[in-house]
Every structure is written in structure tokens, then in C-alpha cells.
Design a protein around this nucleic acid. Structure first.
Lengths: 351, 351
DNA sequence: TTGAAAGCGCTAACAA
DNA sequence: TTGTTAGCGCTTTCAA
């Protein structure tokens, strides 16, 4: 790696001062066309590229926003990251993604927090999984930070989030309307707090319909498909199995569908299922999975907007920005035992 | 955004010189235990975080490796990025991912090349799609750079790549062995050069078997599933349709499978299909898609190793590191019309 | 073991 | 319009 060409070299070659060269290159401030051309020519010839670091050190602004994720291979995380990449463009900023490959605050993320200063103008955490200590560090930091879909605990940081409680409640209410009364729930992990919220929605819907929550109908998963298979099997093997299952996310719902097929049961004739997230696989599964989705693009937009406001030292708009989730009806939820006979009949005929 | 705490503040608080504080914090050089403790306490109390930028500016090394991708939502790209994230850890480096959201060198990537200097110690391009000018810029840069799966044209940059030609040839040879003689090919885009290589393998396999290439059996796609559906339909509507199809990637192969099902044909009894990449969906499709895969982890390892060698100013090992691809046999390729009768019979019975 | 000075590459502020 | 000075926060000399 040869020594890099600096502005000093360019200035020398062009026969001007460093400052003039700086002005010519950046376009800021006055500089005669002639000088500009001369400097540009010299830069071109030497293969000059400005040192981003040095520039950052002065101006304070780096025009870079960082996104921190725990697992980039997650489809949901990926959709947010892509939406953020696009959104950030509108502000002429660049986006760097950091994949922590695990929970923040367990040593691996240490270096990241050390880099909080200087490297980026602001940071977005997407579905963050982190220790309480780490969250505290973040709260105390003076860098602009926005969290997306974090709801495990209260925080002073601005959070953009989808409405999990009402989304889940609508989904489960839909099942109840279809005539289901024994509805299972498959939990995910507790990291982001989203599973807990979806569970709250589940319980609220049952309660509103005057149905007692049967705790044996609640199975534990980890948001991944295999755990959904396991949970699905467990629910189906109950003495009184559910006639419908609501899984805390689509991946587990698809896992449940495998378990259901395994048993030789039909979806939705014998058992209904709905998920959450509307991942791409939900649209192409057989049958199509009924699910809920967060408005990813709008949320990314709000997150960047809020972050930019803080970067530009404008007062933060709101501490918590919540978006209603959208209910996506496909074919995996059908009439249950409590439905009018005609409905059941129709469903049977479809089979 | 409050003013950040600097080393000067810490030193002042601890009652030592800035240099002593620096030594105490970094652990480099001499410092008495007592002083170290004093400094650390002060740093803790003030909430000091070292400014990464300033540190980088001196030392030269940033301990950050950048990965540039055109489309992070691609499953293949994603698997490489994840593997790289893991690999980089071994060298105590951090990985930042930059999603260019389009081809490099068409204006959007401009800013990226300007940041080539200083911000990172090295750069990895995964399946890069870029203009020739952009490649030239990269070649002239003195930053350590490694390309993964780029083969559109010759380059002086080190490239880690999977063997597309032999992989594709093996796949098509497999189809020929199964008795197929009319084998279709679905092209992808030309950006990375991978489709062209897979086509070369396709042609080589046919040639080796003494089969003339029928250009009408070659359809154009764009590596995405919908284009596979279109290409599949086109091939099936030929006067003499193929009995097997090799698609330049799995996404298009899955698209073809939809087109085949649309026609009421069975896979593999009526028509066989194989893809390339072994994306997750290939394993769960009905039937399982026979395909080829690049050894992602090994390739990521080689790429990082090669990059680190260059970062540490050791001589680059090799200009081109090629990995054989692995053939993954599932259920989407079965006996063709030229197969012994018994084989055909068996296949029929399975249906 | 500690400190002072110098400088990394760049730009904001002032002066010419 | 151009140049000079100073300084961002840190670390690498060198000296004490």
C-alpha cells in the first residue's frame, strides 16, 4: 500500500496553497474557474482521493448513518435495512450496516459502542437484542440514536415501532369471528419484547370475547421455523388440541403448518393458522398464510426523519412513533367449530 | 448533541498529562498501576469514549473492513456477507456493509469511491455489478481490495470465485446421463459474468456428449424468479420443448417450476430441472431442487485471508482463488427420454 | 515512568 | 480571489 496522495501534494503540483486546493476540490467558497481546473487536473493526475477521516475530524458531520442489527439474515431485518438504505439517500447520507452476530453488550458489541463517537452522525438499531447495560450506555450517549421495533422495556431513546398488540388482537379476533374458541399461541424469544406484545394482543382478544385463556395452549418457540414445528406438534398432541393457532411470527407459523401436515390434517379445513410479519415465504406457502405486517417503508422513513432531526439539532418530534399493522388475509384461516353450519359446509366443499 | 468528552478532559480530571492518559487507556507503553487506575476512574466518571477517527488518523489502521454489495436482499449475497462477518472477527476487525442499491459507477457509487481512503483498511466486493470505469478506478486504488465472484472481465485485482464452468458442466452432464438430449438453459444478467460462465459449462457438457447446441433452447432471464416463469413458459411453448432445463440460478429455476406446473406437467417425470446456488428455498420446494452450490464459508475465509495479507503488506498469495462447486442432488431431475426403459418405468411408478 | 512537542489531512476563520 | 493560521483528538517521537 503506497503512501496516499494528499491535498498537499495536489496543491504543490498545481502551484497553489493547500487551502485553495481544498476549496477547488470541495466546491465550497470562492475559487476562480481557472484555478479550479488547474487543481482538478493535478488531482486527477496524481490520483488524489480525499481522506474521509480527516474531513470528518474537522466538520463534525460525516454524512454517514450506521445501522446496527443482530442478525442480517433475518428477512424482517433485511427488509428494514433495505428500506433504510433507500430512505437515507434522500438526505444525501450514506448508510453503513453493522452486523453484531449476536446480542449487543456481551463483549462482542463492545467495540461498537467505542465507535459511537465520530464515525457516524447517527445510529439506527433495528430489532435490537441487547443487555440492559447496553441500553443504558446507549441512553447516556450523546449521539443521535433511533430504535426500530424495540419494546422490551421503557427507554428514553426515540422508538419507531409497529403496533404489535392491536395487530395481534385483530388477528386473533378474526379467528374468533370465524368460530374458533380454542386458539393456541406460539411464543418467540423475549429479546425485543415483540413476542410479549403479540401475546398481550392474543390475550386481549380472547378476553374481549369472554374466552378464558388456557395456558396449556401456549407453546414456546424461538422465532425460527424448526421451533414452530416442535411447538405445533406439542399443541396438536394435547388431549384437547386447538382448532386454530396464532404464531408470534411467520417463520414459526410455517413450522406449525409442517407439523399440521405431518399429522395428516388440512389447513384451514381442520385447523386454522395465522402468523405475523408477512415474510415473502408467507405469500407462496400452500395455502397462503394469513398474517399481519408492519408498514416497513413508512417506519424506515419515520426513523430516518427522526434521526435527521436530532442530527441537525432540531428538537425530536416524538419519543415514540407507532404504526398500525396491516392485516393480510390469505387462505390459512377458515371457519371453526363455532361457525354457522353454512360456513362450515362451504369450507368443507372447498376441500 | 453535547460536546464529546476527550482525552484532554480525562487527563485534566486525573491530574496527568494527555500522553499519560493515552497510555493508560490504550495499555501501550509504560504507566504505573496507580496512574492507570486514576485515569480509568476519571474516564469512567466522565463517560469518555475514544474518538475512533482521531485514533485512526494517526495509526493508519482503522481495523474496519468494508463490504460492498449491490443488493443486500439477495440470498446469495446475504450468505456471503454473514460468512464474512464471522470470518473478520478472527482478525479482531469490524465489518461495515455498504448497500449500493444498484450498479456501481453510475453516479450513486461515486461517493463510495471517494471514501476509499482512510475509512477502512480494506474492501471486499461481493458479486459486484459495476461499470468498466469503476473497475478501473478500483484497480488503480492503492487500498487493499478483494473481489468475490466477479468474472465479467479480467482484472488485476485479486478474485475469490466459485468454479461456475465446471459446476454447470457437471450439472448438465448429470442431465445427459439421465437420458436428456434437449436441455434448455435460462440465462441471467451479464453483470458479474457468472451467467456467461454457467452457460459455457452448459455448452461444454453438450459438446462433450456430441449434442449440438440448439440456440432456441436458450432463454433470457434476469436472475429473479418472475423472469424464470416467463422463460420457462417460452421454453415449454416451443414446437419441440426441452425435456430438461438448467437455469443459471435457483430463483429462476423455481420460476421455471411454476411455469411447468402451470402447464400441468410433473417434475421430474415429465420434465427435469436444475438450478445453481442452493438457496434455502431450493431445499424446501416441491420437489426439492437439484442444484450446485459455492462453498461460501471457505470462500469468505479465503477472501478475508487474502485481504488481511494485503492490509499487512505481505505479498498477495494468489491473484485468483477458485473453489470447486458442490453438486446437490435432490428430486427435480429424473430420467429423460433417452434413459433405459427400466429407469423411465421406475420414475413413472414414483408418480 | 512521565511529559512536551510535533503532526496526521483537512477545513473554518480570518487576513491580505 | 487567495493565503495564513490554527486546531479537530489522538499518538509517535524525543526528552526529562
Amino acid at each position: 500500500m503506497k503512501k496516499a496522495v494528499t491535498l498537499v501534494d495536489v496543491a504543490k503540483k498545481a502551484g497553489v496553497s493547500v487551502m485553495t486546493a481544498s476549496r477547488a476540490m470541495s466546491g465550497e467558497g470562492y475559487a476562480s474557474e481557472e484555478t479550479k481546473a488547474k487543481v482538478h487536473a493535478a488531482a486527477q493526475e496524481l490520483g488524489y482521493a480525499p481522506n474521509a477521516l480527516a474531513r470528518m475530524m474537522k466538520g463534525g458531520r460525516t454524512n454517514v448513518i450506521g445501522v446496527v442489527v443482530n442478525d442480517l439474515s433475518s428477512v424482517v431485518v433485511n427488509s428494514f435495512v433495505t428500506a433504510l438504505s433507500e430512505e437515507v439517500r434522500k438526505y444525501e447520507m450514506d448508510l453503513f450496516i453493522y452486523n453484531s452476530l449476536g446480542d449487543l453488550g456481551d463483549g462482542k458489541g463492545r467495540r461498537l459502542s467505542q465507535m459511537l463517537h465520530g464515525l457516524w452522525d447517527g445510529l439506527v438499531f433495528v430489532l435490537p437484542r441487547m443487555s440492559d447495560d447496553y441500553l443504558k450506555t446507549l441512553e447516556q450517549s450523546d449521539s443521535p440514536i433511533v430504535l426500530i421495533n424495540y419494546c422490551r422495556q421503557e427507554t428514553s431513546l426515540p422508538v419507531v415501532r409497529g403496533d404489535n398488540v392491536n395487530g395481534a388482537r385483530d388477528g386473533v379476533a378474526h379467528l374468533i369471528e370465524l368460530g374458533h374458541r380454542r386458539i393456541g399461541f406460539v411464543r418467540g424469544t423475549a429479546y425485543t419484547g415483540q413476542s410479549a406484545e403479540r401475546e398481550r394482543g392474543y390475550r386481549a382478544a380472547l378476553e374481549a370475547a369472554g374466552i378464558d385463556v388456557d395456558e396449556t395452549l401456549i407453546a414456546q418457540g424461538d422465532f425460527n421455523e424448526p421451533s414452530g414445528v416442535v411447538a405445533g406438534r406439542a399443541l396438536l398432541e394435547l388431549a384437547e388440541p386447538p382448532t386454530a393457532i396464532f404464531a408470534a411470527n411467520d417463520a414459526m407459523a410455517l413450522g406449525c403448518m409442517s407439523a399440521i401436515r405431518e399429522k395428516g390434517l388440512r389447513i384451514p379445513q381442520d385447523i386454522s393458522i395465522i402468523g405475523f410479519d408477512d415474510m415473502p415465504a408467507a405469500a407462496v406457502s400452500q395455502p397462503g398464510l394469513t398474517t399481519m405486517r408492519h408498514p416497513v417503508a413508512a417506519m424506515a422513513q419515520a426513523a430516518v426523519q427522526e434521526l435527521m432531526r436530532r442530527i441537525q439539532n432540531q428538537p425530536g418530534r416524538r419519543q415514540r412513533i407507532e404504526f398500525p399493522s396491516e392485516f393480510v388475509v390469505r387462505d390459512s384461516a377458515g371457519p371453526g367449530p363455532g361457525a354457522p353450519a353454512t360456513k362450515r359446509g362451504k369450507a368443507r366443499k372447498q376441500a
